[in-house]
């Protein structure tokens, strides 16, 4: 009986570790997604501003300490591409968050089962 209990305990510890790892990973993904979303809104704002500008307006891009002149159409396409890329990246993070949450749920269930296996002897002790 004690041996079984030991094994359950080990398994419980393992499950707990994995559960916590999943939790950490989720947190990381959520943080990344938040950062990406902030970038996305900033880029959207820039795109709106670029749309307002008239054809042939002078645009400069800050590269390091210097302002480099850039074509309006080029700037527009760069920002559009960036928005596309960041949106895709946000989606990617969202799917991995969903996957991790499923995994975490699995671990949670297993933990519950293991705990119920553990509890009777624990009460006796």
């Amino acid at each position: 009986m004690a041996n079984v209990n030991k094994q359950v305990k080990l398994e419980l510890q393992k499950e707990l570790d994995e559960f916590q790892k999943a939790q950490k990973d989720i947190q990381k993904c959520v943080e990344t997604r938040q950062k990406l979303e902030a970038q996305l809104t900033e880029n959207k704002v820039v795109k709106e501003e670029l749309e307002i500008l008239e054809e042939g307006a002078n645009i400069y891009k800050l590269t390091g300490p210097v302002l480099v002149k850039q074509d309006l159409s080029e700037a527009k396409s760069t920002v559009s591409k960036r928005i596309e890329y960041i949106s895709a990246e946000v989606k990617r993070q969202e799917t991995s968050i969903a996957d991790l949450e499923k995994e975490q749920e699995k671990h949670r269930e297993k933990l519950g089962k293991l705990q119920s296996q553990m509890s009777p002897p624990a009460v006796k002790a």
Partner: peptide
């Protein structure tokens, strides 16, 4: 004037 419109872009306005 040059206006900072975000993400490193400046527009002459």
């Amino acid at each position: 004037v040059l206006v900072d419109i975000g993400t490193g872009y400046y527009a002459e306005k």
